[in-house]
Simulated assay, not measured.
Amino acid sequence: MWEEKLKYFDKLVDQCDRFERKGKKMIYTSANGYMFALLNKAGEIGFRLPKPVATKFMEEHNTGPYYSYGAKMKDYVLVPESLYDNEKLLVDFLNQSYDFVMSLPKK
């Protein structure tokens, strides 16, 4: 099951030409010194978004904050599996997540 989620995460990332997936055990994307998308050991995907976008995402898609290794990840939302059929939407949010970390001061 986790392997299927990894393939799906990679499929989303492969549709974005400005970044690539990193990690072997901890799967993530990063830019500008910040991680912005994660696949946790439970096979859940999280995107880092600006607060107003994250709030709207959670309300519209009936989801909540994202947790990885038991910790609530700041500015991250849990991507519900109900959206997995809408790759175009998720790729758009993944790109928004990249744009968000690129707008932050470089680490």
Rank of each mutant, 00 (worst) to 15 (best):
D14K: 15
S68F: 06
S103V: 09
F93H: 04
S97R: 03
T55E: 13
V13H: 03
T55W: 03
G33S: 14
P80T: 02
L94H: 03
L12T: 02
A71G: 03
C16M: 08
I27W: 04
E81F: 03
P80G: 02
N32I: 14
K56M: 12
S103M: 06
I45P: 00
E87R: 05
D14G: 11
M1S: 10
G23Y: 07
E4V: 10
K56I: 09
R21T: 12
M35E: 07
Y8E: 12
G46W: 00
Y84F: 15
V53K: 01
A31P: 07
E20C: 08
L39K: 06
K41Y: 05
P52A: 10
Y66T: 07
L38T: 01
F93S: 04
A71C: 13
N86A: 07
G64S: 13
K25F: 13
Y34L: 11
N95D: 14
Y34D: 12
M26I: 15
G70N: 10
M35G: 11
K107Q: 13
I45M: 10
K7D: 13
K51F: 09
N86Q: 14
K7G: 01
R18N: 10
P65C: 04
Y28D: 08
F36D: 00
K7N: 15
K7V: 10
T55S: 12
M102D: 01
V91E: 04
K22M: 13
Y84H: 15
V13I: 15
K88P: 00
Y8W: 13
A54S: 14
E20A: 10
L83S: 01
K88Q: 11
P50M: 05
C16S: 12
G43Y: 00
V77M: 02
I27G: 04
K41V: 09
V91R: 02
K7A: 15
I27T: 09
V79R: 02
Y67R: 14
K25D: 13
V101Y: 00
F9S: 02
C16K: 01
E59A: 12
N62F: 00
Y66G: 06
A31M: 10
P52E: 14
V79I: 15
L39Q: 03
K107G: 10
G43S: 01
F57R: 02
Q15H: 13
L94N: 05
Y66Q: 05
P52V: 07
D17P: 08
E81V: 11
A31H: 13
Y66R: 03
P65G: 13
P105N: 07
P105K: 11
L6F: 14
R21W: 06
M1L: 09
F19S: 04
M58Y: 02
D92W: 05
I27F: 08
F100I: 05
F47V: 02
L90G: 06
I27S: 05
A54P: 04
C16W: 06
N62P: 00
T55N: 06
M35S: 12
E3M: 08
P65H: 12
E4G: 08
V13F: 06
V13R: 05
F57A: 10
K24W: 07
T63N: 04
P50D: 12
K74N: 15
K11M: 11
N40I: 00
P105S: 07
K25T: 14
M102H: 01
Y98C: 09
S97T: 09
Y28H: 15
F100L: 05
K24Q: 12
L83M: 13
S68L: 09
K24G: 11
G70D: 15
H61C: 02
F93G: 06
Y66I: 09
K107T: 12
Y8S: 15
Y67H: 14
W2Q: 03
L49C: 03
